[in-house]
Design a protein around this nucleic acid. Structure first.
Lengths: 337, 337
DNA sequence: TTGTATGCGTTATCAC
DNA sequence: GTGATAACGCATACAA
């Protein structure tokens, strides 16, 4: 089933069928209707490969996600969902590439096979080979997260430094003197994971500014790690009365450890941080936290990418999100343990 | 950058370059090396659209997921991850289509635009338009889940009826006389969601067989719904001493409700069901449950699909998974409340 | 061992 | 208002 078959059945040339489809040339009402009838009857749609070859664009966006062997965090999942949704609104398809390793066939196909018109890159590191790879290959791309030197590229990111800083100030205002940061996993930090490093920087700056004692610990992205990490923190730093975290998946475990230690929140201990809304609302009591607007961010990433594709010589743009801290019920005045 | 450019630089014809790439014809070592050098130098890779047009296949699989506006369950996420991973192992890309509504552009593009060689369909209903759509369009497809009449199609599925039946028998063996099934949401059930219906059928058959009183309730896929649902269940059916569930996302809420009611698990109340391993292990105490092998299932779906693509006239195959119930610590002898 | 020619299905330029 | 035709980049049957 191709355009020639439609043309034959409608008794017209292929170009006329093409112009009915694109509307780029006037076609008389009668022939247009005749052609449209045949198209509808046979359920014809142009072959995507042929069209892509001819037009030089695929109407497809690439989305590079973390390797499939590790479970996506809720925030990552939120980005994926919103990117896919935003792309669909523009009638664009999304090609998934689970990339993170060194030599990645899937990623290479995307970069150099002209399979996509542009790429959204997730989970990037402070120094990230994939970014330079895409840049040299001349593929338009937008990153969710940013490298250490993001000048000249399009990106969106959460301002972890500012958000964690705000959390610390909030805790300081409540009278807390020793606070801890529960970060993501040590592996991630070692790999130069931006959010971890920037959150830590913000934490250190804020604790210094307010004269607080700041402890920072790494923690795996799961309940068990959260429980173990919090248990250890409570044992080794008995003076700590509050934590801020960017590790949403550890929250249930942290809660469990606090409960096991006989500490009530926020009476004996305060908890705050940055988390997807779902985690914050499921915490008991509901978590005072910055809710990351993953939905808006994915849409914005697609928007920036389309801009980049439309105007190849255009100026890259970026956007740093610092959503407000939603005051819920997990933080309160300091009380010595 | 195309094959002609490579040929020009290497001083050979385009076909020779093509044959070096494919290895389908002998090429002298010297010219091969010369060509390969140029290819490596320029980082050339064949244009995917041109190749797809010529070969009649895209080396891409479609993956139809639930609409992006609702959060994916962990099980769904597991399927997506394993399908993507399995496809990558075969050097295939995955095109995502968030479809569920009635008239879906993204899905139509996939079906009729020849963008993919085959489709993996998730979250299908007992009667599912998309299945008939794909079948009439002649697109090879495999479903994760199955329709009411899955004869003649390739599918994989979890045997919810058998698993829930086993759970009920396990509870009956422990002396429970009144048990409940916590199902997925009422909307899903009304929409003809297969797992819900089959779990319910298995539940009814098993309770009847063992002479138990069986209550079944629907419950949204989140903590809050789980808590509300369990709270209500405990209030309206004080004789119930155990539940089986297929709603993993409701587990934390159910746990919370049991705790609030002063019921200990498994001392006062038993909990079991079907859940991704992660949920079972995070439950306190760890949940006696059938762990759905999402990883294997996604890989098997891809395997079946590739088989279908390779032999268009071949016999469809299917596979029903009934993983064993992992005995952990959330079930115990019945004790009247 | 290598080169030439054709066609995959489309869009767009040119001609009428 | 419509038709013929030339690319897009590739793989391969056919020649040499």
């Amino acid at each position: 089933m191709n355009i020639g078959e439609i043309a034959r059945r409608a008794g017209v040339s292929r170009s006329t069928v093409s112009y009915v489809l694109s509307g780029k040339r006037a076609v008389s009402a009668t022939t247009r209707q005749r052609i449209q009838a045949v198209i509808d009857e046979l359920g014809y749609r142009p072959n995507a490969s042929a069209r892509a070859l001819k037009e030089g664009r695929t109407r497809t966006l690439g989305l590079v996600i973390p390797p499939a062997n590790q479970r996506l965090t809720d925030m990552q999942l939120g980005f994926v969902a919103s990117v896919v949704e935003a792309a669909a609104r523009h009638d664009l398809d999304v090609l998934l590439s689970p990339s993170g390793g060194d030599h990645d066939r899937s990623f290479e196909r995307i970069v150099t096979g002209r399979r996509v018109d542009g790429v959204v890159l997730m989970e990037i590191r402070l120094t990230d080979d994939r970014v330079t790879r895409l840049a040299t290959a001349g593929v338009p791309f937008v990153t969710i997260g940013r490298t250490a030197e993001p000048h000249g590229m399009s990106w969106i990111d959460v301002d972890y430094a500012a958000l964690i800083s705000r959390c610390v100030h909030h805790l300081a205002d409540l009278g807390h003197r020793q606070v801890a940061l529960v970060n993501r996993s040590a592996e991630l930090v070692a790999a130069g994971y931006g959010p971890s490093h920037r959150a830590l920087a913000g934490f250190r700056a804020a604790t210094a500014e307010r004269g607080l004692t700041g402890i920072d610990v790494c923690c795996g992205d799961d309940t068990a790690s959260g429980e173990a990490g919090m248990t250890q923190l409570l044992a080794t730093h008995p003076q700590v009365t509050a934590v801020a975290t960017i590790n949403e998946a550890a929250l249930p475990g942290m809660q469990r450890a606090l409960h096991a230690a006989g500490l009530s929140v926020p009476g004996d201990f305060s908890v705050t941080g940055v988390a997807a809304q779902h985690w914050a609302e499921d915490f008991r009591p509901p978590l005072t936290a910055a809710d990351v607007p993953t939905r808006d961010m994915g849409a914005e990433a697609v928007s920036l990418l389309l801009e980049l594709i439309a105007t190849p010589g255009g100026t890259p743009r970026h956007r740093l999100y610092a959503p407000p801290i939603s005051l819920r019920e997990s933080t309160g005045p300091a009380r010595t343990r």
